[in-house]
Design a protein around this nucleic acid. Structure first.
Lengths: 145, 145
DNA sequence: GAAATTATATTGATATATCAATTATATTTG
DNA sequence: CAAATATAATTGATATATCAATATAATTTC
């Protein structure tokens, strides 16, 4: 039995790598903030950098569909990480805004996120990482065709 | 706004790559078999190669926890892709067995799976793929520490 | 060999994923 | 400008993810 990679394709390794990273990341983030998931964390990071983003754009960036992001946002509003107000120019849209609690929480998580990434990529040279990115981008482009 | 990679880390690219691949794979598999997911497909592939595997081992190989695999198997039994019988030597366990329908379905999907993988890895040299695997395995090992 | 521990799997609760259908608003077209 | 089309987001249904608690069986320990 091929224990590490039962399919024998690099695509399995890609999935395994991200699953292991998510496990590590979630474990460490939970240590500092109890009620947040790494996906919610990514939402905060992206909203922090991109004020005027729509739910649809946000969904794309965090790899979710509109339905999922709707429910995630609902929950994050309920937990007071986000505010949601109607978009004046296009009333189909909403403005998404991080609350003060959201910002505080993000600041609390930032060092943990940094350590997580460092841990995952430990021992990899810059060249190796660049090559990894390049290869992954090729795969992404191939799948989108 | 960094559109392709808002976090600037290779880990985001890893996630993006596998998500794009899963989309492609699911789309093409649905064309030949309506009621199966790529995860169920992976379960069939693994069970086909490993007769005497426990649910726990299976769960590990497909990156799921025991609860998820229990429900997946229930569903696959209901859809008649699998049979489940009590394990005589260890009565906590079950024997998982692909049905004839499961085997037929798998044969139907095999060429599609092959094409999907080829599509995703198109234009990558063997060396590039080997290096990708090597780097990913380092990341996997780092996360497990 | 009975009690304590460990292992396998299930169940319940809640969140998320996904698809299809729907609602509300904007935009385009004739 | 009204009708048709397109877009943003929501809702419903069902499957899956995840954690904690539980049930059952096997193994270990004394």
């Amino acid at each position: 039995m091929k224990l590490e990679n039962p399919t024998g394709t690099a695509l399995y390794s890609i999935e395994k790598a991200i699953k292991e990273y998510r496990k590590l990341a979630q474990k460490n983030i939970t240590k500092v903030v109890k009620d947040i998931t790494i996906d919610q964390c990514l939402v905060l990071i992206i909203l922090n950098d991109n004020q005027n983003i729509s739910q649809k754009e946000l969904a794309n960036l965090v790899f979710k569909d509109n339905a999922s992001i709707t429910r995630m946002i609902e929950l994050m509003v309920k937990k007071q990480y986000l505010n949601r107000t109607i978009h004046l120019e296009d009333r189909r849209k909403f403005n998404l805004e991080i609350t003060n609690k959201g910002i505080t929480t993000l600041e609390l998580m930032k060092p943990v996120i940094k350590i997580n990434r460092k841990t995952a990529l430990d021992g990899l040279s810059l060249e190796e990482i660049a090559l990894l990115n390049k290869t992954l981008n090729k795969i992404i482009a191939n799948c989108k065709k």
